[in-house]
Design a protein around this nucleic acid. Structure first.
Length: 770
DNA sequence: GATTAACACCTTTTT
DNA sequence: GGTGTTAATC
């Protein structure tokens, strides 16, 4: 055994070592939470390279999230040094995008295709519906989600299985078809297409697939339990059964993306798809104290249809879990903040090793407020907030047009941003004209004079606008870095200028964001330059002539590469801040670990989510099983302390709701909370002021504006007789209520504001007592 | 054509 | 609480 070898096998337990050493053929690694699976994957890759002398470019390692890919890459750099540069380590979507770009012409795209996100997709669906005259038939959102589902199942419009007589299904199919045509015409793809088009291409053109099979002799997949049918199809193409070197690592108990088409059966049936696959179980947990592990097990064991395994640990039992019972969500948030400060003061746990989890993003607001008030530093770990801002998306739309002027969705987005006097009527006429001529908007705008019913000013403005796009497009073709393209675009479009001129606080922030966007482009260029240097100085190895060993993204032009990063990676800097508590959804928590974890909202209806509660048998449905797995994921993130919190009532979606404690809590034996069966405490009663308001106008109990629940400055509802009351409106100033009607959040009142304003009927919640 | 107020409607998780 | 749509007004 040489030095490399022993170093790479160091401190691995038996099954881990078995997985690293496994030689040839398919391998399934069932890895429980905290059992060291990333270590297994990275060591295995390093072992292949160093001991078996596999060329790094022969190895493809796919993960599900960008975070995971980044971490894996970092660890591999530590193990392999610059040899790691030649590995392909990326998400399904990134690697598919890179391959698709190389093969674009086979699928009716050009290499400069752009990637549409959710919002763009919805616009395309809406336009497809409008053109087909089917606007009122179904919700565009629903159509889109059904299209996405079809794509997840690897089905093109013609592959859809529609029962005869299924009107809605037929409608979806029709629009799906029109939608795809529009994407192709715009030289654009959506997320689903990245995978689906590639699978289709490989199916139709085996010789193209062959090139990649010849190259990638080793394929490794992380979080395999979350793969959906298209992803699995792609894997099977690249690493065909029965004998390819395909290593899949995952944990069926942590499958939490069923709603996005992920199929647990992929992992459950893997041994059948790849007969002879070796199966290794990693059951030793190195992360959590035993009390936490036991609690997690009690929750997950209720699921039927799982691969039986039980994590064990030689760690101490540790402290018991702590149950936090709160009156409402505000108290919950305060208590979380208080406990965080206490833990920090004890000195053992730093802010940066604590996290607060919640089921839905809507829960984060109250938590943030409380943490801010308590001066607890925190970071909100949410996917891609920066690139979701309107102004940043406008800027990206311009950039995408610079690369690909045919992108109608982008053109429509910015045709009047900043305002240049091109209104809805004009746009509609341009769109109609483009539809009849079957051309892109950009093409049609080359000769705006031909568009019917336009007046001369409109034609002139369109001409100027088209001129702008044209010169940007030309500029982009000559540019060698992303930042100069962004810079040029910001100058020419006057996006920043317009915002600055507006002068409001909000527009100033937006202008700042655009400057930050430029900064992101500069940073991107720097990283790219560094990567190029590293690649050039890497060891030159002999490559068999029939194999293409070039990096997948080899000659993507810089602006395009930057755009790809924006769409697929998002805000790479949104890592958990130093010295800050992390706030995130349970889904975002997968793959992370913290000394102390706060799991909030353990109430039936919140977690498990209300959607999982309805149905015939809410305790055994697939949705409930998934909620349970989500709970398991949440629990097993904690190393030493697990706080589980609920609120007896919480206002969600504008309404006050009383939810029973989560059924998951009943699965945890009380002794793990350090309490006995009898003294399971009652949550504190809601304060009298928090009583649900059910009053109507008939109950005359004196003038009163009910703002019991929210401390907000607005009037949530109106009750009692408020006539004569003084109120203030942001626009109209101070006045007196003369009449009122309705109740609840949309109650209206008529107010005499006096002066020039006079009588106005306004929604009560826009008023403040004044 | 732009701007604003009113109002309807939705709200799980995200590559 | 946000977002998109409509109607009214400049």
């Amino acid at each position: 055994m040489n030095a490399h070898e022993s170093a790479l096998l160091e401190d691995l337990n038996d099954p881990q070592r078995e997985a690293v050493l496994h030689h040839g053929g398919p391998l399934l690694v069932l890895s429980g939470a905290g059992s060291g699976k990333t270590r297994v994957i990275t060591r295995r890759v390093a072992y292949l390279v160093k001991v078996h002398e596999v060329f790094p470019w022969r190895i493809l390692a796919v993960t599900f999230t960008n975070k995971a890919a980044r971490e894996m890459r970092e660890r591999l750099v530590q193990l392999l040094g610059r040899q790691a540069n030649d590995l392909v380590v990326s998400t399904f979507h990134s690697s598919a995008a890179m391959i698709l770009r190389r093969e674009a012409e086979h699928v009716g795209l050009t290499r400069s295709f752009v990637i549409y996100d959710d919002g763009d997709q919805l616009n395309v669906v809406k336009r497809a519906m409008r053109e087909a005259g089917l606007e009122q038939s179904m919700q565009p959102r629903e159509i889109l989600s059904r299209i996405d589902q079809e794509k997840n199942q690897a089905r093109l419009p013609e592959d859809m299985e529609v029962e005869p007589g299924d009107e809605r299904g037929l409608l979806v199919q029709r629009i799906y078809h029109a939608y795809q045509e529009r994407l192709r015409a715009a030289n654009a793809v959506d997320f689903g297409d990245l995978l689906l088009l590639l699978v289709t291409l490989f199916r139709k053109r085996p010789e193209v697939l062959e090139n990649y099979r010849r190259r990638f002799h080793h394929v490794l997949v992380d979080e395999f339990q979350d793969t959906n049918p298209v992803q699995y199809a792609l894997l099977k193409q690249l690493a065909p059964p029965p004998s390819a070197n395909l290593v899949v690592v995952g944990d069926d108990d942590q499958s939490i993306y069923r709603w996005r088409g992920a199929d647990v059966d992929n992992i459950l049936n893997f041994p059948r798809e790849y007969p002879g696959a070796k199966v290794v179980k990693l059951e030793q947990n190195y992360r959590s104290d035993r009390n936490i592990l036991d609690a997690a097990y009690e929750v997950i064991r209720k699921n039927t249809r799982r691969m039986e395994k039980k994590l064990w640990s030689d760690r101490p039992a540790g402290q018991t879990l702590q149950l936090m019972l709160n009156r409402d969500e505000r108290m919950e948030a305060q208590e979380v903040a208080r406990q965080i400060l206490a833990l920090q003061r004890e000195g053992f746990i730093k802010f940066s090793s604590m996290a607060v989890f919640y089921r839905v993003n809507a829960q984060s607001r109250v938590l943030e407020e409380a943490l801010r008030l308590a001066r607890v530093p925190y970071t909100l770990v949410s996917g891609r907030s920066f690139y979701d801002r309107a102004e940043v998306r406008d800027a990206s739309a311009y950039l995408r047009l610079m690369v690909n002027p045919r992108s109608d969705a982008d053109l429509l987005r910015i045709i009047n941003t900043p305002a240049r006097g091109i209104g809805d009527t004009t746009v509609e006429r341009v769109v109609d004209h483009a539809n009849t001529r079957n051309q892109s908007l950009y093409e049609v705008l080359a000769e705006p004079g031909l568009i019917p019913a336009l007046n001369t000013t409109a034609v002139k403005r369109l001409r100027t606008f088209r001129g702008l796009l044209e010169s940007l497009h030309v500029y982009a073709q000559g540019t060698t870095d992303a930042a100069s393209a962004v810079d040029e675009m910001l100058r020419e479009t006057k996006l920043v200028e317009t915002l600055v001129a507006e002068g409001s606080d909000e527009s100033t922030t937006r202008a700042e964001n655009l400057r930050e966007f430029l900064g992101a482009a500069q940073e991107f260029d720097l990283n790219r330059a560094a990567a190029a240097v590293a690649a050039a100085s890497g060891p030159q190895v002999e490559v068999p002539p029939e194999v293409d060993a070039a990096p997948l993204s080899a000659d993507t032009p810089p602006l395009q590469a930057f755009l790809e990063q924006i769409s697929l990676v998002g805000d790479a800097d949104a890592e958990v801040g130093e010295g800050r508590v992390a706030l995130m959804t349970l889904h975002a928590a997968k793959g992370l670990e913290f000394d102390a974890v706060f799991l909030t909202g353990l109430e039936d209806g919140v977690f498990p989510h209300s959607r999982a509660l309805k149905g015939e048998d809410p305790d055994n449905g697939e949705e409930m099983a998934e909620e349970r797995r989500l709970c398991y994921v949440g629990f097993t993130r904690a190393r030493k302390r697990l706080f589980v919190s609920l609120a007896q009532c919480r206002s969600l979606f504008g309404e006050l709701r009383y939810n029973p404690p989560s059924r998951f809590l009943r699965d945890v034996p009380p002794k793990l909370f350090g309490i006995s069966e009898q003294d399971i405490p009652e949550p504190p009663r809601p304060a009298p002021m928090a009583a649900p308001r059910k009053r109507t106008w008939d109950e005359d109990d004196g003038p009163r504006i009910d703002r019991s629940y929210s401390q907000a400055s607005d009037m949530d509802g109106v009750s009692g007789d408020v006539r004569g009351m003084r109120v203030r409106h942001e626009q109209f100033g101070v006045g007196r209520i003369v009449a009122a009607d309705g109740s609840g959040p949309n109650a209206k009142v008529t107010v005499e504001f006096g002066g020039a304003v006079g009588l106005k009927r306004v929604i009560a919640r826009f008023l403040m007592p004044g």
